[in-house]
Write a protein that binds this DNA or RNA. Structure first.
Lengths: 251, 251
DNA sequence: ACAATCAACTTGTCTATACATCTTAAAATA
DNA sequence: TATTTTAAGATGTATAGACAAGTTGATTGT
């Protein structure tokens, strides 16, 4: 909470899809874009309500609604008398966090490393097609990545990706970025679902995770949408002894 | 979406803690209470904005804010030109659902039944006090309930409750209502956290759940707040073979 | 130099009004 | 009778103005 900068508000509505949205919604979009693009950075102060009013000629109540809703959604933090600031990066998420294992490991102050076990371009089986909501034989990518925390296996990530929506998936360097990070950059996730189960690992999984066959694992199946399209479906397998899933909801 | 009834709005603000809240917040509380108490039932139409304006003498924008926020939170559904209705009981929640096993089982069209194994009034141990955010020896209730789906055990629910916030917890008939249902009615949950793990059950748990010692279980630890107070902490244990946790986020 | 006061700016809330849009039912018309 | 038009009522949004309350820095007074 510091840092006051000068903002150019004339371009606030640039680069926005010209959908017929109400003003407050466009304002939300625009501000959200400033944040996600990095132009307005964490803890930075953003323009006050009256500044936006003067710059855009809208009513203060309209600006107030946009800022209030973005605050409720966790993008902003407001302090009476002080101003409005870009919120800490998901200090606590609204829900079971969109799961980036690399970030999590880093947040614990541990070393993250990953091994790419499989990366192939292929065609969707009937089951895979069902999962991704495409036709059989639609082009997909399939990948398997093993993630380590301090050189101990922490997650097997099996993933299929809609090739139409992420055509360069197989050209990425997954030592630098996790598959999830790349997908978020090309097709920002707007919706998702997950299914969590406790299961016993099979022989291959035991070996990959370096665990006993009797050790329970947390299996998370997740699908993520961008608009109406399913971008990717993943199956994440975690050793029960090394992993907890934490969630938080409400205010 | 049907059913229009006559509402007595004079008593809207009854039974409300007289905390110094803004009007829109009091309105939200009051409406939320009408819903959770069952006085306003699912799919029932609630008073229109202008009716509330006339009855309470507040501005329509204030009523609008209350209703809009309750809609965003999933309590209400609004249809332009038609009215405002009590939302379907969390058909899908914004996140890992606040978990009412009885509802879930019923939603699957199965029979739910529960057995009360333990119900005692006692004082908080140091660990329990930490969990609930109270002092050691603070009055608490401790309960263990076994839930069945079609007469097959589906969940062990171990729970401790802050006795100050739910003083009649031990006088409830848990054959009729789950502990969670009662707690929601006396202290509506505003916030929560959960921790999900895959573990192996101990001997007692194996027997209660009628499973093998080798069967992995999904353990969910959950704490729920009402305002700044922790109302209850629960540990829910599910057989992995009979249970999946489903979550959904985004719009 | 120090303390108290004040002014300016911020967010938070509330009101009153206006118009748009959607839905339904009554009324007018063919 | 059947169709169209109209009116009423509901939510959705936008505006202008007002006051409350928290914060900061400048000003004033001692």
């Amino acid at each position: 909470m510091s840092d006051v900068t000068i903002h150019n508000l004339a371009n606030l509505f640039d680069d926005l899809p010209d959908a017929p949205l109400p003003i407050y919604a466009k304002l939300k979009q625009a501000i959200s874009l400033k944040i996600s693009s990095g132009e307005w950075q964490t803890n930075q102060r953003i323009p006050s309500e009256s500044e936006v009013v003067k710059a855009l000629g809208v009513s203060r109540m309209t600006v107030n609604r946009a800022l209030r809703e973005l605050t409720a959604e966790g993008f902003l933090v407001r302090h009476q008398g002080l101003g409005t600031f870009v919120a800490e990066k998901k200090a606590h998420s609204a829900l079971f966090e969109v799961h980036n294992i690399a970030e999590e490991v880093a947040a614990r102050g541990h070393k993250h490393r990953s091994e790419l076990l499989v990366l192939e371009s292929t065609k969707a089986s009937m089951e895979e097609a069902m999962t991704l909501g495409v036709r059989t034989n639609h082009g997909i990518f399939r990948s398997v990545v093993l993630h380590f925390e301090n050189d101990l296996p922490i997650q097997i990530e099996e993933r299929i990706v809609n090739a139409t929506l992420a055509p360069d998936y197989d050209k990425q360097d997954f030592a630098k970025h996790t598959p999830y990070e790349y997908l978020m950059s090309v097709a920002p996730m707007t919706e998702g679902e997950h299914l969590v189960e406790a299961i016993l690992p099979n022989a291959v999984e035991c070996e990959r995770l370096q665990i006993q066959a009797s050790e329970p694992c947390l299996q998370i199946k997740r699908r993520t949408w961008a608009g109406d399209d399913i971008v990717t479906a993943a199956r994440l397998l975690h050793p029960g002894s090394r992993f907890q899933l934490f969630g938080h909801f409400g205010r």
